[in-house]
């Protein structure tokens, strides 16, 4: 199992990578961590005429605090995210979520930007980006544009990225939130069957505001459960409200049947995992851990 031939290009800067993308007119692939791209090359599911290696682009793997946002460079690797003191304190959902991604070897190489651009519907980083209300910063030779994570994913392995664009940065708003993730996978580190992430801001009176519940593996893309999130905001996550939110999330989902689980099984899991995630959220609040 070997890749089809391609031209190897090494970009020394974002500008250079963008010029190369332009030159190959959509027939080149950017190589970052390679944890999704290289298997696809090996299996010849992708046969681009060129592979543009961006691993040597300086400055693309920085984690910066900017006011009430944290900006993470597209080339930031999972292990860095997992061990970043800044992220542990400012975006604990991200460091927690990374532990569901692949294994140590994959996390050594895999990158945040690569995960978003690859757009696996069960991907944990896309899920976390949506739950946290992140903005994906995309660049081409024409300039930059900022795309809300909720609008970034169009389908399985399909995003709003144009062939001549690349993800350069992901910006996460930082608020005084509590967050949680729960995932059902056949084994730890395997692709998720479904995953649910929730973020909320505690009110003074025991209630919650700005609750966001996102689901992975239940549709063509990770989704924000808009109605469920709206219902939960302003409540104290009482069991009957949580149950109704679970039903709303179920209604918003259109799960696939694949080798890992049937659509029916995924539907069965949705309300259960919405409940578990929200219970975890409550527990963490009462523990004051996050």
């Amino acid at each position: 199992m070997k890749p089809a031939p391609f031209v190897y290009e090494r970009a020394g800067s974002v500008e250079e990578a963008l010029a190369m993308l332009q030159r190959y007119e959509g027939d080149a692939r950017l190589l970052a961590g390679g944890q999704s791209l290289v298997p696809l090359l090996n299996m010849r599911l992708l046969m681009p005429s060129a592979v543009i290696d961006v691993n040597d682009v300086p400055g693309l793997d920085e984690i910066r605090e900017e006011g009430d946002e944290v900006a993470i460079g597209a080339l930031t690797r999972y292990s860095r995210i997992e061990w970043s003191p800044t992220l542990v304190s400012r975006l604990p959902l991200l460091t927690e979520t990374v532990r569901y991604v692949g294994d140590r070897q994959v996390r050594t190489r895999g990158t945040l930007g690569g995960s978003l651009a690859h757009a696996d519907p069960t991907g944990e980083m896309p899920l976390a980006a949506i739950a946290l209300g992140a903005t994906v910063v995309v660049q081409s030779q024409a300039g930059r544009r900022a795309v809300p994570a909720e609008e970034f994913f169009l389908g399985p392995y399909y995003t709003v990225l144009e062939p001549e664009e690349m993800v350069v940065e992901v910006r996460f708003p930082v608020r005084r939130t509590v967050s949680a993730i729960a995932e059902h996978a056949r084994r730890h580190g395997d692709f998720a069957v479904i995953s649910v992430a929730a973020v909320g801001e505690p009110n003074g009176d025991g209630g919650w505001k700005s609750v966001r519940v996102a689901l992975g593996g239940v549709a063509d893309t990770p989704i924000l459960a808009v109605e469920a999130s709206a219902l939960l905001s302003g409540t104290s996550l009482e069991p009957d409200v949580v149950a109704r939110a679970g039903e709303m999330a179920l209604a918003a989902a259109d799960p696939p049947t694949d080798v890992r689980a049937s659509a029916d099984y995924r539907r069965h899991l949705i309300p259960i995992y919405v409940r578990r995630t929200l219970e975890l959220l409550q527990t963490r609040r009462s523990e004051g851990a996050r």
Partner: peptide
Amino acid sequence: CEQGVCGMCTVLFDGEPIKSCLMLAPQ
């Protein structure tokens, strides 16, 4: 497996473990 699942090809890249079937030699 040559697709990054089994881990047999693990080596250290600048001291960190990677799957060497998922890295191109030029990298």
